[in-house]
């Protein structure tokens, strides 16, 4: 019986060694160690042995069994590892193949500029005001100190619908409407929107374009407040080291009126093609709200004062992104639009 046991052991170890995969090895396990296997049979057959041999024999069988099991488990671990290795090799991919695109669109560059400006002023406590694109002559001109026959009306050739209705030539009528609606109370608004002027479309003119204006009215609003506000804007929009300068100008709805230049963001002021070698770039017009404008909207210009400023997102986008032709903004060429996908810090 002992010899039989040794032979079984040798056989089992050989077969374990010969197993080349998990399945074969499992077959060996079942064949030799299973409930119907020869080792179990041997244990069952021990009843026929004399009682004094039984413990010795039992121990021997258990030793063989443990030995075989141990070798089998080791082999099993090895084969399982191999199997995983094979699987991994089979599953390896060309990681340089293109991924499945996540197709997303993006803001129009003008919206991008407008929202950036909106968000900046919202953070300083401004609200966003909007108004109609088809306006009454009154709100577009008269309420802004531009009575009929005023020479400054020439500055803005307009599309009229009727004698006293036109496509707004600037977003300033939103200011006039807001002032009227606020009935003498303080105001702090930003007005973005589309405006229209009688221009032939070319590289620098568009009969439809965008404006964004700001208006602050309160007690003792000073020109220094305008300058400080514009400086914050210039730094946020064009870089921390931007400087601003104000130059006298004229708008019928402000007095004094100024134009604001920023130090060139490309060359820093030393002169380049962006600033036309002057070191400065004209960005916006601004001024202290004209008392006539305040009075017409029912504000007491002795008690309240205000400032207003306005700029063209097209111009800002053209400067910022180097766009050379204003018509690109209205052609909606996907090759143009899709370039404004990435974020900026």
């Amino acid at each position: 019986m002992e010899a039989q046991l040794q032979q079984l052991k040798e056989e089992a170890l050989q077969k374990i060694e010969a197993s080349m995969n998990v399945k074969e090895l499992n077959d060996v396990r079942v064949a030799y160690l299973g409930k119907k296997g020869p080792i179990t049979d041997l244990l069952k057959g021990m009843g026929k042995l004399p009682a004094e041999e039984r413990p010795k024999m039992g121990a021997l069988v258990n030793v063989v069994r443990e030995e075989v099991t141990e070798v089998l488990e080791a082999r099993m671990t090895l084969l399982q590892d191999q199997a995983i290795q094979e699987q991994l090799e089979k599953e390896s991919i060309d990681v340089t193949l293109p991924g499945r695109p996540v197709k997303t669109g993006n803001h129009h560059p003008l919206t991008r500029v407008v929202e950036e400006i909106e968000d900046l002023f919202i953070s300083m406590g401004y609200e966003i005001a909007e108004g109609p694109e088809v306006e009454k002559d009154y709100y577009n001109f008269e309420a802004l100190n531009l009575p009929k026959g005023h020479p400054a009306r020439d500055m803005q050739d307009s599309f009229y619908i009727s004698e006293d209705i036109l496509l707004r030539t600037h977003t300033s009528p939103v200011q006039a409407r807001t002032m009227e609606a606020k009935e003498g109370k303080p105001i702090k608004i930003i007005c973005p929107g589309k405006v229209y002027r009688r221009d032939n479309d070319d590289a620098t003119h568009s009969h439809q374009f965008t404006q964004i204006e700001g208006l602050v009215i309160g007690e003792n609003i000073r020109m220094s407040d305008l300058k400080g506000t514009l400086s914050v804007f210039a730094k946020k929009m064009f870089g921390e080291d931007r400087e601003i300068r104000l130059r006298p100008s004229f708008f019928p709805f402000t007095e004094p009126s100024v134009e604001m230049d920023i130090s060139c963001f490309k060359c820093g002021g030393s002169g380049c093609n962006v600033c036309k070698k002057t070191g400065w770039i004209e960005i916006l017009g601004a001024g202290m709200v004209h008392p006539n404008v305040l009075e017409m909207a029912g504000y007491d210009s002795k008690k309240l004062s205000g400032f207003a400023f306005g700029m063209g997102p097209e111009r800002i986008a053209m400067l910022k992104y180097g766009v050379e032709d204003i018509r690109h903004f209205y052609t909606n060429d996907v090759r143009f639009l899709s370039q404004f996908h990435r974020t900026e810090v």
Binding site: F121, I122, S123, M124, G125, Y126, E127, P186, K188, V216, G218, E219, N220, I221, R222, M223, S224, D225, K227, G228, T229, S231, V232, R245, L246, R247, P248, V258
Partner: peptide, 16 residues
């Protein structure tokens, strides 16, 4: 205009 200082409006603060 270069001599004008830079300030911000002093007013009741309210959220925009």
């Amino acid at each position: 205009y270069d001599e004008i200082p830079m300030t911000l409006p002093v007013e009741e603060s309210k959220p925009g």
